[in-house]
Amino acid sequence: MAFLSAHFVAIVFYVLAVLAVAGGVGVITFKNPVHSALSLLGTFLAVAGLFVLRHAEFLAAVQLLVYAGGIMVLFLFVIMLVNVKRVSPESAFLSRRAPLAVIGGVVLGALIAFGVLAGSLGRRGGGAAALQTVQGHVVGNTEAIGWMLYRHFLVPFEIVSVVLLVAMIGAIIFGRKDAGLEGRGGRMEP
């Protein structure tokens, strides 16, 4: 118990980290896209937990709402819509160059690790308080982000809303039945 209480944060981290990695491996190894999607959901949840560990409670909530709640549902809808069984034969779910791809990815990761981890990143304390403080008052993470977002990052915030709008319109146009993608003749349907 003493070990548990002393290393609570570390234990939680490792549990969540293993969950996240396992989820990631599942995403790229399950043949069935539905299984991939469910293992991705596991990764999302684990990452949300890791956010909480790093004093980003608001972001953890956003992660759950947007990823687990929104994007994941969207994925599942699309998988159902396109009838995965028919379009994705079990035999050939991997690309022909899969071994080469895995080697390439691992090499890239190793290079990044070598480049980044060569320097020391010791721990510097006092971060938690700063993430919950507005003008010297401790007010909590969500309110602090609110202040930040609507004071210093108002213009990017507004621009990002436009990006979302454009994406929405684009998605609607792509998804329309008469999007003009079938046949070059531009067949029009009433």
């Binding site: 990631g24 790229i28 994705s88 779910f93 690309s95 899969a98 791809a101 895995v102 390439g104 990044i112």
Partner: peptide, 18 residues
């Protein structure tokens, strides 16, 4: 980094767009 590499490998090996 591990998650990133997993993502990159997935990008390259999977044939399914989803």
């Amino acid at each position: 980094l591990i998650l990133f590499v997993l993502g990159v490998i997935g990008l390259m090996v999977r044939r399914n767009f989803i």
